[in-house]
């Protein structure tokens, strides 16, 4: 079985979001870039599956659509144990363009299981996985919180409102994963970093797909009004607020 994990590069989740003064662009000054947290969990699960299924998974490839400066996140993926990496040399414009670039690569390099994070923590598009599956004309399962392999078959858990479904879906498949898929992302070891030195990042020329959408203006929310403090021994005041203003009781 071959697994492809799609990874995107996002600002660290503690980043204070800023935009250029004309509001047209994200201000990346001083931003620390990381692998999108859900993508990293997807990769972690792929590695766990490879380690626990005794040779069933022959290869884990990570793919990223991005310029050369995203290579550090790709290198990290290789350091924690991905076998192979592909970078499609394009600026990721919108989800459709990204999905189209990846789909093009997958058409000539088939995979059994393709993993994507449920969203990227920057543009929150929730889109690449579903689009990719549609472009490849294969099934997709979203909100996946667990993937197991039993006798060579995938057992997928999908989160639904108020519960979960255990599903059996044939490959090839795009699994769009969310929290729960793996516990903690891995920290690369010195051995892993050393091993990654000999792994090549395959750089692929883009097909340059026009984006279907454009971000034209970014805005930060209005700052919230001052928090009204209520003394802990005057909870009656809070009861009044809950009743009169919030109408919760």
């Amino acid at each position: 079985m071959k697994i492809l994990v799609c990874i995107s590069n996002v600002p660290d989740t503690t980043t204070k979001i800023k935009f250029t003064s004309d509001g047209k662009q994200f201000d990346a000054t001083g931003v620390q870039w990381i692998i999108n947290p859900w993508d990293e969990l997807a990769l972690t699960r792929a590695l766990e599956l490879k380690e626990t299924t005794g040779g069933l998974i022959e290869n884990i490839t990570v793919i990223n659509v991005g310029t050369k400066d995203t290579e550090i996140t790709i290198r990290k993926a290789l350091s924690v144990g991905a076998d192979h990496a592909v970078r499609i040399d394009a600026i990721p414009t919108d989800a459709y363009a990204v999905a189209s670039e990846i789909a093009k690569y997958v058409e000539t390099h088939p995979f059994d299981l393709i993993l994507t994070g449920i969203e990227s923590s920057d543009y929150n598009g929730n889109a690449v996985g579903g689009m990719l599956a549609e472009l490849l004309n294969i099934p997709s399962v979203s909100s996946v919180s667990s993937i197991e392999i039993n006798e060579g078959k995938l057992i997928i858990t999908r989160e639904i409102d108020g519960g979960k479904q255990i599903l059996d879906v044939p490959t090839p498949l795009v699994a769009i994963v969310q929290k729960g898929i793996a516990k903690e992302p891995r920290i690369p070891s010195m051995r892993g970093i050393m091993a990654a030195r000999t792994k090549v990042i395959e750089v692929v020329n883009p097909i340059n797909v026009a984006p279907l959408t454009d971000y034209i203006l970014f805005e930060l929310p209005q700052p919230k009004g001052k928090c009204k403090m209520i003394p802990a021994d005057q909870l009656d005041e809070l009861i009044h607020v809950l009743h009169q203003e919030i109408k919760a009781i």
């Binding site: 989800a95 929730n126 889109a127 579903g130 990719l132 549609e134 639904i160 769009i176 279907l212």
Partner: peptide, 21 residues
């Protein structure tokens, strides 16, 4: 969950721009 899963596929199928959230 369901809306996100379907909207992305439909967007690609129709080549229609997706705006989520």
């Amino acid at each position: 969950n369901t809306g996100k899963a379907l909207a992305s596929r439909l967007s690609a199928k129709l080549k229609a721009g997706l705006v989520s959230g």
